[in-house]
Structures are given as structure tokens and as C-alpha cells.
């Protein structure tokens, strides 16, 4: 009796094969769901959290909001953030030497800020502790999802680079450049 059932099951099973073919056949006729990468990109890159970047200061978009308090470097589980503080004394001295800049700018220059802000993306695990713990909300995730490079060094980012453009444009003015910013 058991074997009779088994034979019946086998024969009935043939129909299940046809049903399987029907499923794949329908999918064959339907649209594709993949994205042809180089021609198109995924549409939700906006919510992706890629490597971190520095936020511009609200009163001066040419400078980062960062006050170089070192919290981010401390909370990072893998030590991928290296911040070097500007030396405020030298800064003031520098601006004084320049003399040409007005008082307001001198005050801004004297503000605390990072001299260098290096971020090693190869060690970053995107946990977001630096973003959460930054007291002045100076760090945010970028949505750079398509990163490629041919050596590890390409992923060690200088986060001041995007501000550096402006600073460099100021460089010709003598006295503004200080040894700290140059380093």
C-alpha cells in the first residue's frame, strides 16, 4: 500500500514540476529588477551612510564647525580619526603679523579648530559614534556609495580638503598662513 502511495505521489509530483516551470516562465516574461550600474544608479543613495565628512560652520561656510575637542577620536572604536589642534596662540600671532585683516576675521581665526583632520576609511566601521557624540554636530555621514581606489592610501581622507580650497585661495595674502594650517 505504501508503495502504491509512493507511486501516486511520484506521478502527482510531475504536476509540481510543471508549476515550477510556470513560476520561472512568468518571471522570464516580467521586467528586470536589477539596476544597470554604470548607466543607472540606485535611487536610495541619499539614505546610505558612507564615509564621514565635516559640516560647515553656520557663520562661515569656508570653515568647519569642528572645535577640535577630540571627542570623535576618543570614541572611535578603531582609532580611524586623527585630529591635530590648531595652536591658538600662534594663530593670533600670525593674524597680528598680517595686520591687514579686519578685527572680526581675526576673532574668527582665533577660534578653536582642527589643524588637520585625517580619517582612515579603511578602518572605519561606520558605527556612527563620532556623529552621535560630537558636541557641536560637526560630523555627518556622506552618501558616497561609489568609492574606488587602487591603493589603501586613497581611502585615507583629509576631511579639511574641501575647506582647504578656500583657505588656499586666501594663502597669497601674507601673514594669514600659519605654520599650523600649513602642516
Amino acid at each position: 500500500m505504501d508503495s502504491v502511495n509512493r507511486i501516486r505521489d511520484d506521478v502527482a509530483g510531475l504536476w509540481s514540476l510543471v508549476k515550477g516551470l510556470k513560476v520561472t516562465g512568468t518571471c522570464f516574461a516580467r521586467d528586470q529588477v536589477t539596476v544597470h550600474y554604470p548607466r543607472a544608479q540606485v535611487d536610495n543613495l541619499r539614505t546610505f551612510r558612507g564615509p564621514i565628512e565635516l559640516v560647515e560652520s553656520p557663520d562661515d561656510p569656508r570653515r568647519p564647525r569642528c572645535i577640535a575637542c577630540m571627542t570623535c577620536a576618543g570614541v572611535c572604536p578603531h582609532g580611524c580619526i586623527t585630529v591635530v589642534r590648531k595652536k591658538p596662540a600662534k594663530m593670533e600671532k600670525g593674524t597680528e603679523k598680517g595686520g591687514g585683516s579686519d578685527k572680526g576675521e581675526a576673532k574668527k581665526k582665533a577660534r578653536k579648530g582642527p589643524a588637520t583632520f585625517t580619517y582612515d576609511y579603511t578602518r572605519c566601521c561606520l558605527c556612527g559614534f563620532c556623529v552621535e557624540n560630537c558636541p557641536v554636530r560637526s560630523i555627518r555621514f556622506s552618501s558616497r556609495g561609489y568609492l574606488a581606489g587602487i591603493d589603501k592610501g586613497a581611502f585615507v581622507f583629509d576631511l579639511l580638503e574641501k575647506f582647504g580650497e578656500e583657505e588656499r585661495s586666501q594663502k597669497p595674502e601674507p601673514g594669514v598662513t600659519s605654520p599650523a594650517t600649513a602642516g
Binding site: 505521489d9 502527482a12 509530483g13 509540481s16 514540476l17 508549476k19 515550477g20 513560476v23
Partner: peptide, 13 residues
């Protein structure tokens, strides 16, 4: 659809 393609499939069973 999962059931049709796989769970009921005689070979899979």
C-alpha cells in the same frame, strides 16, 4: 510563489 517553486516541488521534497 515560494511554495509553488520549491516547497511543493517533487525533487526538492
Amino acid at each position: 510563489m515560494y511554495a509553488e517553486l520549491v516547497t511543493e516541488n517533487i525533487i526538492f521534497r
